[in-house]
Amino acid sequence: MAGTNIKIELKGAQPLQAALAKLLQRTGDLSPALRDIGEFLHLAHDERFEKQQSPDG
């Protein structure tokens, strides 16, 4: 299964870095939520593929 990584690198943007750090503290590990989202998308695409439906319906 493919992995997902998000990396944000900021230079000279201390207020934004502080805000992102606070957000990370509040949300914690988003891996379970992102895993659920990925599973939903996988199942939805498999279903559309079986029905031979385009992504837009």
Rank of each mutant, 00 (worst) to 15 (best):
G3D: 10
P55L: 02
N5C: 14
D29C: 04
K11Y: 09
L24W: 02
I37T: 13
L20M: 04
E9N: 08
E39I: 09
A21S: 10
R35P: 00
H42N: 12
G3F: 08
I6S: 15
E47D: 12
E50H: 07
A2L: 13
A19E: 04
I6T: 09
E9V: 05
A19I: 03
A33D: 05
F49V: 07
G28M: 06
D46K: 13
D29Q: 04
L10R: 04
I6D: 12
L34Q: 10
F40Q: 15
G12A: 03
A33S: 08
G38Y: 06
D36Q: 15
R26Y: 00
K11H: 11
F49S: 14
E39S: 10
A21M: 05
K22A: 08
M1Y: 10
L30K: 05
A19L: 09
A33G: 04
T27K: 08
G38A: 15
R26C: 02
G3A: 09
L20R: 04
Q25C: 10
K51N: 06
L20K: 02
A21E: 13
P55Q: 05
Q17R: 04
E39F: 03
G28Y: 01
R48L: 08
A44S: 12
Q53A: 11
D46P: 02
Q52D: 09
D36T: 08
S31A: 10
D56Q: 07
G12F: 00
E47W: 04
Q17E: 09
A21I: 00
R48Q: 10
L43M: 13
E47R: 10
L41V: 15
A13F: 00
A2W: 11
K11G: 07
R35H: 08
F49Q: 13
A33W: 03
E39Q: 15
D29V: 01
P55W: 01
S31G: 12
A2K: 08
T27D: 12
D56Y: 06
